[in-house]
Amino acid sequence: MSEEATSYDASNIQVLEGWEAVRKRPGMYIGSTSERGLRQMVFEVADRAVNEVLDGRAASVDVTLTPDGGVCVADDGPGISTPLTEAGAATGSGTTIAFWPDADIFGAAEFSFDGLVERFRELAFLNQGLEISLTDLRRPDDSCSVRLRFPGGARDFVAFLDGHSAASAPMDTIAFEHEDPRMAGVMKVAFRWCSCPEKRVRSFANSRPTVDGTHAVGFRDGMRAAVIAYAREQGLLTATDPDFDADRISEGLTAVVSVKLDRPEFEGSTRGVLGNAEVRDCVGQAVQDHLGRWLKDDPERAAAVIDRIVQCARRD
C-alpha cells in the first residue's frame, strides 16, 4: 500500500455543524435508530415536563401518540420563557412540545405503547406526587389511555413487582426515605420477603434504571449485616456456623433502591452503573439500621424470615 493512500491529516477531518451532526450519527444521542431510540426521544422530551412537576411548577404530564405518527408532550406549568406571540385567549398555562420521527432515520419503526408505559410507570413510582398520562390515538378504532400516579411511592413499587406473590409475604414492606449529607443526596428504599424463590431487586439513580452500582452494593451490605447480627444475637447461628451469604439472604426478596444525588458519577457512557463511592456506606448503614430495628420489633416475623434463610443455606 502506498504512502499516499494511507496519509491522514487535518484536511481529512469533516466538521459537522448543528443538527447535521445529530442526523449523521443519531445513535450517539438516543442509543439506536430502532424502536428503543424512538422511546428514548420521548423520554428526553418528557424529562423537562417531569422536572416541572417535581420542582412544584406543574401538577401533571400528558403524553399523546397522535394519529399522524407524532408525539405530543404537555404539562400545566408556567410555560417555557420564550418571546411571546399573541394567539388569543388562554384558559390556563403550560408547555406543549410535539415532534415527528424522521422516516429516513427510523424507517418503519413504531413507538411501543407498552414500552412507554413501563418507563413512565417507573417514574411515577419513584416520584411521589407525579402524575403522568399516556394516550395512544394512532388507531382511532383501538385507542387506549393510562393514568399513572402512586402516592405510596417505592412501597407501591414493591407491591407491583410482587404481583400475586404479595399475599404470601411473611413480612410487611419496610420502606424509608433518608437524606445523607455525606452523599449529597436522598435515598428511598423499600423491600420485603415473599415465599416465592425469585429475587426482584430494582435499582435507580436520579430516576434512571441501573444494572448495578454503589447504591445496590450498599443495599446488599446492609441487608447482610442486619440479618447476620440478629441471627447471632438470637442464637439462630451458632459460633461454628458460617455467615449467610448475600445470595441466600436475597432469595425471595423484592426491593426497590433509589438514590437522587446532586453529583451522580456513572461508569461508562450508558449510565447503567453508579460509581459514587460514598453512596455504598450511606445506603448500607441506613438499610442495616432500619432492617435491624424491624427484626427486633417483630420477633415472630423476624424468626420466619431468618428460618427461611437458614433452610436455604442448609439445602446448599
Rank of each mutant, 00 (worst) to 15 (best):
F266N: 08
L236Q: 01
P264T: 08
P242E: 06
L236N: 04
K260H: 15
Y230C: 08
D221W: 00
D245N: 08
Q234F: 10
I249C: 03
S269L: 10
G222A: 02
G252F: 09
S269Q: 09
V259D: 00
D243F: 13
D243H: 06
D247K: 09
V257L: 13
D245Q: 00
R263Y: 15
K260I: 12
S269Y: 09
D243T: 03
E233K: 13
E267W: 14
L237Q: 02
F244L: 00
R248M: 11
L253K: 00
D241C: 02
D262P: 06
S250C: 15
T254M: 12
F244T: 02
V259G: 00
G222D: 04
V259H: 05
R248V: 11
A229F: 10
V256Q: 11
A246R: 07
G268S: 04
Y230E: 12
R220Q: 10
A225E: 15
R220V: 14
L237W: 08
A231V: 01
R248D: 15
I249Y: 01
P242C: 03
L237H: 01
F244I: 04
F244H: 02
T238Q: 07
E251D: 06
G222I: 00
R232E: 01
T238F: 10
L261D: 04
R220L: 07
I249N: 00
E251Q: 09
V259I: 02
D241G: 05
Q234D: 13
S258V: 00
A255Q: 01
A255K: 07
V257T: 02
D245S: 02
